[in-house]
Computed example of a mutant assay.
Amino acid sequence: MYKFVIFDLDGTLLNTLEDLADAGNFALKAMGFPVHETEKYKYFAGNGIPKLIERIVPEKCPRENVEKVHGIFSEYYGKHCMDKTQPYKNISKMLAALNQKSVKTGIATNKDHDFSVKLVKHFFGDKIDVVCGRRNGFPKKPDPYSVNIILEQFKADKKQTLYVGDSNVDMKTAENAGLDSCGVLWGFRTKKELIDSGAKYTADSVEQLYRIITDNKLIIDN
């Protein structure tokens, strides 16, 4: 059983894809640029919003216009980041069950810190102990900086800590932090990507993830 679990956010706990795509396409339209299908945002996301913006703008886009798209995106997303976003099925029940077992939970994400805190507070309340999002001037995943902050706050033993995410960035983050990793298959990326990136475990359901963490069955009361 793991006593500490650190989660990614987008594609792991929350399905944020449509709101990210809507914000990205709104910003692109505002600048007169071509838009993208929602599914493509699964691969634009994962390395933080600045990198997402670089990926969605036209090739060789002037830096000034990239920054304008970023500004429009951030303003729109700040107002609409909860329009369509929802926790994946049974995530909230799993987090509550982990709390009952005194498992400490944190979130290390490349999503901007303020957006992350807003979403976590709205959807999960006090079910998450620590949130560490991207801040300007600090390393982002796969650098283990954010994970190490959480480990220090928890005074956690790395051997008793599991990192859970949905992308190659997450699996490499776990590796760089010296943690076991679990790739979830309901998120933005593929099982092959997760395994190729070093996932120790993969989980195709929240119930399976809970068993990996606790060695127990998650009881779902409908």
Score class of each variant (00 low, 15 high):
Ala156Gln: 02
Lys172Pro: 06
Asn148Glu: 15
Asn168Ala: 15
Val120Trp: 04
Thr12His: 02
Asp180Cys: 09
Asn25Leu: 01
Lys121Val: 13
Thr161Cys: 09
Ile220Phe: 10
Ile195Arg: 03
Val66Tyr: 10
Lys3Tyr: 00
Val131Thr: 14
Glu207Gly: 01
Pro139Ala: 07
Asp10Cys: 09
Tyr77Gly: 14
Ala203Ser: 07
Lys40Trp: 12
Leu151Asn: 10
Glu67His: 07
Thr38Trp: 02
Gly198Asn: 14
Lys200Met: 01
Phe33Arg: 08
Asp19Thr: 01
Ile107Cys: 09
Ala203Arg: 06
Cys81Pro: 05
Val69Phe: 11
Asp196His: 08
Thr38Arg: 11
Leu95Ser: 06
Leu98Met: 03
Ser102Trp: 09
Ala199Asn: 14
Ile107Met: 06
His36Phe: 09
Ala108Tyr: 07
Tyr43Thr: 04
Arg134Val: 00
Leu151Glu: 11
Asn216Met: 12
Thr38Pro: 03
Lys200Asp: 05
Val117Ser: 05
Glu59Cys: 05
Thr173Tyr: 06
Ile212Ser: 09
Glu75Pro: 10
Asn90Cys: 00
Leu20Cys: 05
Asn110Ser: 03
Lys159Arg: 07
Met171Arg: 08
Lys118Leu: 06
Thr38Glu: 14
Thr202Lys: 04
Glu18Asp: 15
Gly106Phe: 02
Lys68Ser: 13
Leu218Thr: 08
Gly32Phe: 13
Asp114Asn: 13
Val147Asn: 00
Gly46Asn: 04
Phe188Lys: 06
Cys132Pro: 03
Asn90Tyr: 10
Leu185Asn: 01
Asn176Arg: 04
Asp215Ile: 12
Ala23Arg: 08
Ser74Cys: 12
Leu28Gly: 15
Asp221Ala: 13
Ser167Trp: 10
Asp126Glu: 14
Lys191Asp: 10
Gln153Asp: 15
Asn47Thr: 07
Lys89Gln: 15
Asp22Phe: 11
